[in-house]
Design a protein around this nucleic acid. Structure first.
Lengths: 131, 131
DNA sequence: GTGCTTGCAAAGAGTTTGCACCGTC
DNA sequence: GACGGTGCAAACTCTTTGCAAGCAC
């Protein structure tokens, strides 16, 4: 029944705490390397496998999404569920406030006898500045 | 101005023709390895880099989507635009007939001053047999 | 002290690329 | 015959894993 604020049953380490803080501060999902570089600012000895292992260890509070560039992005699930508009020119990422799928999942689920657990939506195009 | 049925300006080779045929016959997006194995049935000497190079060469008629398992899937764009329900247990893939986003793109585009060129939607959960 | 976590190094998976030969146009 | 396509092998990127030392509880 133990349940800490952030990490439920995991040990609290400098690396883990900083990783969570980096994700909390992030405005958008981050790649493992982006997390690594931000953590490294404060903990220079950290290695990238520590990032990957924590993404696995903390998977209950993290969502992973692989983008079309082949790199996974990670974000805290406690942050509100978002999708992104991704600019193909400048790679800017714009969050969509309201998930457009909530209303549709019930129908999809019933029509296909499929229990929906999660979904991935990314929209690619050109942002205002790059059009 | 030359424009063939399938391949517009590209050379027609045994490998390329078979790759396109495999994609035309496929009921769902295929990984490079799946394409490779199907092509190999008929052309045993084919190598997987030929698949990847053709995915690049034919990118005007192919859509690539990277799933959360880190593998890219490829499908012909001429096939009708689909999204998939992906079972997390048996990895079965069920196509969704009607794109639920068409109706929403206009709003999203206007609200964010974003020119939408393509989108990716995958839904994960448990299929009828795995629930 | 026990067991999870880390750093380091090496291995794996998926994908890309250099090169010489081959086949299409 | 020229040029793009292919097979082969090696390289590259992202991610995962084995191991011994370190740290949290």
């Amino acid at each position: 029944m133990s349940k800490n604020q952030n990490v439920s049953d995991y040990k609290s380490t400098k690396q883990r705490n900083k990783i969570i803080q980096v994700l909390q501060d992030a405005k958008r999902p981050l790649t493992a390397e982006e997390i690594y570089l931000l953590v490294k600012d404060e903990l220079p000895s950290v290695v990238i496998s520590t990032i990957y292992r924590n993404m696995e260890a903390l998977k209950n509070i993290i969502v992973k999404t692989v983008y079309n560039d082949g790199k996974a992005r990670y974000a805290l699930t406690k942050e509100k569920h978002t999708h992104n508009l991704i600019c193909l020119k400048c790679t800017k990422i714009i969050a969509i406030e309201k998930c457009p799928l909530e209303a549709l999942e019930k129908n999809l689920s019933e029509q296909n006898s499929f229990e929906i657990l999660e979904h991935k939506l990314e929209i690619y195009g050109h942002c205002k500045d790059c059009r």
